[in-house]
């Protein structure tokens, strides 16, 4: 019963997070690359309901802020004018599911900015970057998982089903890939690709590298399942009335690997999300100005950012519930 509740909660959270990432263009008030050079490291703006005169407003508002003196990050609010939060406001253009759009869920009038999660060193809205970065980081994890499980499934099935020489070759190569510490292998493969590439290609390359480097573990597991499935009498019986290899794999063998693949997916997605984050953090992944949770965290390598601007941790903190949900899901799947 509680396992069921956990599974539903985890799935709901993951669905919400992924939907938010998909709808980033609409949900985010600004474009992720829009800079405000006068507002570096502006702190998160509190939503206010009571103004300077002590009057209560039903519609929340924010104050505009200006940097104080020469110290970066010291800001003062200008309480003379309140900027009420408006909904469905026109703003920066974006594309959603291929369709162009320019309406954002919320925003405030110029020249004020609504930075609910503060701003980074270029005065870019952290919330907008977090949402857009989720697109990169979460979907890199998903796509790499599909790729690695796809390749692992194919090689594991071929290896287990046909056995003999093919099996030996595939399993020896798997051992080779498993002999290296994973992150080292990932880096070594990343090293063979050009360093500075446009973000869209960088994203695809990352997915390819992460997905292809890790085919060996799923391949081994799938092979094990296929080996036992192949020996079932009903596979033999189907052969007996003339079923082809392809039919046997499709009808009798693959369905048995489905459970394994699902459990593996729940384990691998968070691991691959972290791989993207790590690579981008170290400058080997998706690069500025396109946000990913990894390159957003890279700013924390400067000690003054690390110690002074807590909102720069947002991507790191956002990772925790996502990973927790995936773990809960994998646990629920494996104890089913």
């Amino acid at each position: 019963m509680s396992a069921r509740v956990g599974r539903v909660a985890a799935l709901a959270l993951l669905a919400a997070v992924h939907l938010a990432a998909l709808g980033a263009g609409f949900l985010a008030p600004y474009a992720p690359t829009a800079q405000n050079r006068t507002l570096p490291y502006a702190p998160p703006a509190p939503l206010r309901f009571v103004d300077a005169e002590g009057v209560f407003h039903l519609r929340p508002f924010v104050y505009a802020v200006t940097e104080q003196g020469s110290v970066t990050g010291a800001y003062a609010e200008d309480r003379r004018r309140a900027y009420p939060v408006r909904f469905l406001v026109p703003g920066a253009p974006y594309r959603f599911a291929g369709l162009p759009g320019h309406v954002h869920l919320f925003g405030v009038d110029e020249p004020a900015r609504i930075f609910l999660l503060g701003a980074d060193g270029f005065g870019r809205d952290q919330l907008s970057r977090l949402l857009h970065g989720a697109q990169i980081s979460l979907f890199a994890g998903l796509m790499a998982t599909v790729l690695s499980l796809g390749v692992g499934w194919l090689l594991g099935t071929v290896s287990g089903f046909y056995g003999r020489g093919v099996d030996a070759v595939i399993m020896r190569s798997a051992e080779l890939f498993l002999a290296l510490p994973w992150l080292y292998l990932l880096f070594a493969v990343r090293a063979m690709l050009p360093l500075s590439i446009p973000p869209a290609r960088a994203f695809l390359l990352l997915v390819l590298v992460i997905g292809l480097v890790d085919w060996a573990r799923p391949a081994r597991l799938v092979r094990g399942v296929v080996l036992t499935a192949r020996e079932r009498s009903y596979v033999l019986a189907a052969r007996g009335f003339g079923a082809s290899d392809l039919y046997l794999i499709r009808r009798h063998i693959s369905p048995q690997t489905a459970g394994l693949l699902l459990t593996q997916a729940a384990l691998l997605v968070p691991q691959y999300i972290l791989a993207e984050v790590t690579l981008s953090f170290l400058g080997l992944g998706v690069s500025e100005p396109v946000p990913s949770w990894g390159n957003m965290l890279a700013d924390l390598q400067h000690y003054h950012v690390l110690a002074s601007y807590w909102w720069m941790w947002a991507p790191g903190l956002a990772l925790v519930p996502v990973i927790l949900a995936y773990y809960a899901l994998s646990e629920a799947l494996s104890t089913r």
Binding site: S233, L236, A237, G240, F241, G242
Partner: peptide
């Protein structure tokens, strides 16, 4: 294959 059928344990 059609003319020979095997029934297993």
């Amino acid at each position: 294959r059609e003319r020979i059928q095997l029934i297993l344990q």
